[in-house]
Amino acid sequence: MAIEVLIFYLLAGVAIAAAAGVVLARNPVHSAVSLVLSFVNVAAIYVMLRAEFLAVAQVIVYTGAIIVLVLFVLMLVQQQDLPEFHGGRPLRRAVGFLLGLVLLAEVAAAILTRSLRGAPGSWPPEAVAAVGGNIQAIGRELYSVYMLPIQATALLLLAATVGALFLARPELIEERLAVARRLFTISLAHPRGVDPLQPVAELPGPHDNERKPAGGDRVLVMARNAEEFTEQPAWGEIRR
């Protein structure tokens, strides 16, 4: 027993430290990585509680998909365009502090009002073992007692999927046909994949700053040394 308690404290400690890292890290990508670490440690605690399915679902859904998508967006956005995480406006800070206090009170109340061992549920370990394991027990419970919530969730997800498809669908019939044709013609190493379509859209013209000066050649730069030469804007270079 003692060794399991020790492992639990190790996992819980790392999970809390990582959760603190999410808030304290300056770089949003580091925050996301800390969150992954925290999730994995929480999943390990689920395994210790014999809730393997919950642990694996947590890893697949949260760390494997959601945080990956968060990182995806973070990497697409320039670092300097991200909102300021630390400091911020005083009102926002105060609201954040208050909400944190409320959450802390909630968690503390939940922990303090229950005894160390919670009330036994309708699935004692023997009953779980009798139906074949964790997953089988969850499946039975979900598809009998929680039938209505499951179907409501399914309906909601279906509506979201249909909405996403509707938003992504091209407006014009021709475009829709073109998309369908592109899907069913997998021609490798072709710039657009299909031949008999409209021509490839023209590339946008060069920016005014990138255009060659009307005089033709580049201005002759007289420089005494290399640094002075490189300080001159090169042709096409846009200085910010």
Partner: peptide, 25 residues
């Protein structure tokens, strides 16, 4: 032999992508 072995394989696979993402970033 865990009773979620196949899901465990998928979970490890989904974690493996972090090496690539973080390395690239």
């Amino acid at each position: 032999d865990i009773n979620v072995a196949a899901l465990y394989f998928l979970a490890v696979g989904s974690m493996g992508v972090y090496g690539i993402i973080l390395g690239g970033y």
